[in-house]
Design a protein around this nucleic acid. Structure first.
Lengths: 202, 202
DNA sequence: CAGGACTTTGCCCTTCGGTACAATATATTT
DNA sequence: AAATATATTGTACCGAAGGGCAAAGTCCTG
């Protein structure tokens, strides 16, 4: 009952990696999308497609996505690229060098008829239809932080170092760190960079 | 590293089912969304929400979806209902009485930062965002960087550490640092944080 | 009043980030 | 051929960042 699987990449190493991760040693391998469309593959076959090497024509993209379930796998994922592929009907967009676990998960999802996308793409997708999305507003994240935490975050958003922030707020550097640690927890991030991304992504 | 999990349903039987399927016997259980918003849960906690019993206020929906990753689980899934929840920022929409396998898959997907939706909803979603494709305006700053530097910056913009980037691009951490130092000079900034600010501001 | 969030700080430790001072290789341009 | 830009990597150093452990004090609420 499992649909046939096809691996499309110019890199045999990558194909090997996929095959190992998913236990698909005997999957058909093709060099590019054009070859897929020329071949007579079963409808709804699962296609793992490496986006790195290929620069397929628009027509090839459409045809492949409509005929098969395409997992678009990019070495350098970008939201715009993902949006484009999903628009053409891809069933998933993920990192080509994902961990075996993640790859397996994406694969399973598609195999059981689902669609897999990362979070930021999903939010963009949602943002496109109808009224504005939740989109963490200023007031939202501010409301979760104490007064002092807000001060520290505000300074952080100007690219200041801990030492700078300490001077600016007239407190010790250790205190700045304490506030930051607390903020990181509240936002579920690991460091200042990720926090900044989380805040500016809104 | 796993985010805390919260089960929200009026039915203890359903909560037991979820807990059994996912091995989450010790997950926090709450009666409804309002309770979740009152509680001081960690950001991005995973919330399994039973849509059957509750009829949450719009505000509760928004707040919960923004602060946590909500898996909206309906006993009678309808596309319109799913669209609504996804619009508010839910991370998944599925059947509340899914098989353990499927539930596990949905759960894994969300846990690793993804979004899970069924096929028909995804198609509706894609259909809504017409033909207009992204207008790429990033070429300006990209043009000043070499190919490899662009790769590194792209990864940096995802909040990755040097070690991460090195793994991703299959080069040494030292090389990543070299590229970054070069990029810093080109942009006249001192560190990755200031670079990020410069890029997102533009 | 007890309990709870918030604020503050010190000491110490590990890891990460950035750079100085190199070297080697390829590709392109002059 | 020489010069320039790019890509790669090493060793080593130092400061920044983040957090564990511990302890102060304030302020507010039940």
């Amino acid at each position: 009952m499992n649909a046939p699987v096809i691996l499309i990449t110019a890199s045999s190493a990558l194909a090997d990696g996929w095959a190992d991760s998913l236990g698909l040693q005997d999957a058909l391998r093709l060099p590019d999308l054009a070859a897929l469309n020329r071949a007579n593959v079963a409808a709804d076959s699962l296609v793992l497609l490496d986006l790195a090497a290929t620069t397929p024509s628009e027509q090839d993209m459409q045809q492949a996505c409509q005929h098969c379930r395409v997992l678009a796998l990019s070495s350098l994922p970008r939201d715009e690229e993902g949006m484009m592929w999903l628009q053409y009907g891809a069933a998933a967009y993920a990192h080509a060098m994902s961990t075996p676990d993640l790859l397996q998960q994406v694969f399973d999802t598609v195999q059981s008829g689902g669609t897999w996308v990362g979070r930021s793409i999903m939010q963009q997708l949602c943002a496109r239809f109808g009224r504005q999305l939740p989109a963490r507003t200023e007031t939202d994240w501010r409301s979760r932080l104490s007064a002092r935490e807000q001060d520290v975050v505000a300074a952080l958003r100007e690219g200041r170092s801990n030492k700078d922030i300490a001077r600016q707020l007239d407190i010790s550097e250790r205190t700045v760190k304490a506030h930051l640690t607390s903020v990181f927890q509240k936002f579920g991030v690991e460091d200042r960079l990720q926090l900044l991304l989380k805040l500016t992504a809104a």
